[in-house]
Design a protein around this nucleic acid. Structure first.
Lengths: 266, 266
DNA sequence: CGTTGATTTGAATATCCTCAACGTGCGTGG
DNA sequence: CCACGCACGTTGAGGATATTCAAATCAACG
């Protein structure tokens, strides 16, 4: 059922895959871009739960959706968590903000992801969620979700599974920042994004990175100039190709996965 | 009630304090080294919950305690989570293990801490817990705990609060690894440990680090040689004093907190 | 009291940061 | 529609920081 070794992986071993390998959930996220009859019946996805709950009517998904332009925040660190959000279109970043102005990008989120769940236990948003392009998200009332989860074990386990994913992702990223060097971190990032786009039914070989070099840098613990240089180096090595700066084509997936890795890694 | 800015801090601002500032919990951990009548009455601590539950009798805490020698594991990554552990004596490290042998120390735990809770949502241990010295831990049955939590809102919120703490700690450490340089990371580590010992009623000014330089290095994303050099530099700067290599004395707390910080930090 | 593993220190090197200049693409408004 | 401004991205050079390999020192333990 569960391969202990497979549940913790790293660049090239498939992060998204590993995160998905915890029991319970078979699909990448709780949300379908379009809620389907099947999930409505099984009450296994967030939309279905809310439909049941009456807080959102069947055909009226769009009514509950919020539109955000680039740079707008979905929620802010420290605020009381009253809603979580299902991303319907576009993309977001999670940002941890320090009192002294320092920032750390904790993650990126695309259509189908749910954001805010990492603060579910704390009942507080643990970070800011900022749109990295014009985006659309669907509000989900946290109380309604909690009560729906109480009644429906499947939904409850799904939510648990998603919270667990954010925990595992955070811990895995600690490994990335703590024991990989720049090139490897970037490769890990690209392969991770590739897998996530694939999980969305999009191409895993070619995709557009919606975030800035600076955001990638923050996420990977590097400066934007370094990120830029590493992109160039990967391109020169024939592992990727870039067009118009944000469109990435992965040429040699295996090459990315098997970069000159740190020998001992601390 | 809650200061949003205070809930995310960094080196020198008091990590442990920040982590404690989430609502619900007033004390640093769920466990008292010695369960008291008060907490038995309020059913607000783990021991009390288990006493109530009958899985552990009042005076018999020691009977349920496990003794581990240095290097032994309390649990292993990927295993099904059936127990969490309250540390009664000694200290542990959490280690994330990669399929390729790479390791990352995720955190250190001392007496009074509870380990394993980060995997509660996943129902899997997300990391290894390894004793860094001869230690003693108290088994807590996860099912019993869950059912006790169902009946007692106070206990439930305590557990939620502890899970939230491990999430916040992981995310905060991402900021440390992602946007601080070596000296600052080490200072952050020392101040964090200092606060944690203080929370235990021990001296915050002088304490013994039970882990190796290599473990500290892994935790901070540095090599053990670098850690050693940074210790020496802090000592030469008059900020700390070291005796017998592991006993640390903090001379100038403010100086540690206000190190030449990264100007822009990505 | 000697062995062993951990720690410290040194020197050379690699990596990454920093500052600076320049190029590119995008959106705005003329 | 084009020109302009502006934010973002790329590239270069030099310097700071951390790694790597090597050797010496220290402390704990049998």
């Amino acid at each position: 059922m569960l391969d202990a070794k497979a549940s913790v992986k790293h660049a090239g071993c498939g992060v998204a895959g590993a995160l998905r390998s915890i029991p319970v959930s078979s699909s990448p996220g709780l949300n379908h871009p379009n809620p389907c009859d099947q999930c409505f019946q099984s009450r296994s996805c967030l939309q279905a739960a809310l439909l049941r709950d009456g807080s959102m009517d069947r055909g009226g998904m769009a009514k509950a959706a919020i539109r955000l332009s680039k740079g707008q925040r979905l929620f802010a660190t420290g605020r009381s968590l009253d809603r979580v959000y299902a991303i319907r279109a576009g993309s977001f970043k999670s940002v941890l903000r320090c009192a002294d102005g320092r920032q750390q990008v904790l993650g990126f989120h695309v259509s189908g992801d749910t954001v805010g769940l990492d603060g579910f236990a704390a009942q507080l948003y643990l970070c800011d969620a900022v749109a990295t392009e014009a985006s659309e998200a669907c509000e989900i009332d946290a109380r309604a979700l909690e009560s729906a989860a109480r009644d429906h074990p499947i939904l409850r386990r799904r939510i648990q599974s998603m919270i667990a994913q954010s925990m595992m992702r955070a811990q895995h990223n600690l490994l990335v920042l703590g024991s990989m060097q720049g090139t490897e971190r970037l490769a890990y990032f690209l392969l991770d994004m590739s897998e996530r786009y694939q999980a969305l039914g999009l191409s895993s070989r070619e995709f557009v990175l919606r975030m800035t070099r600076k955001d990638i840098g923050s996420y990977l613990g590097l400066y934007s100039e370094t990120v830029s240089r590493l992109f160039s180096r990967l391109e020169q090595a024939g592992l990727i190709r870039m067009t118009r700066r944000h469109r990435i084509q992965i040429i040699d997936r295996a090459g990315l996965a098997a970069l000159p890795s740190c020998p001992s890694a601390h």
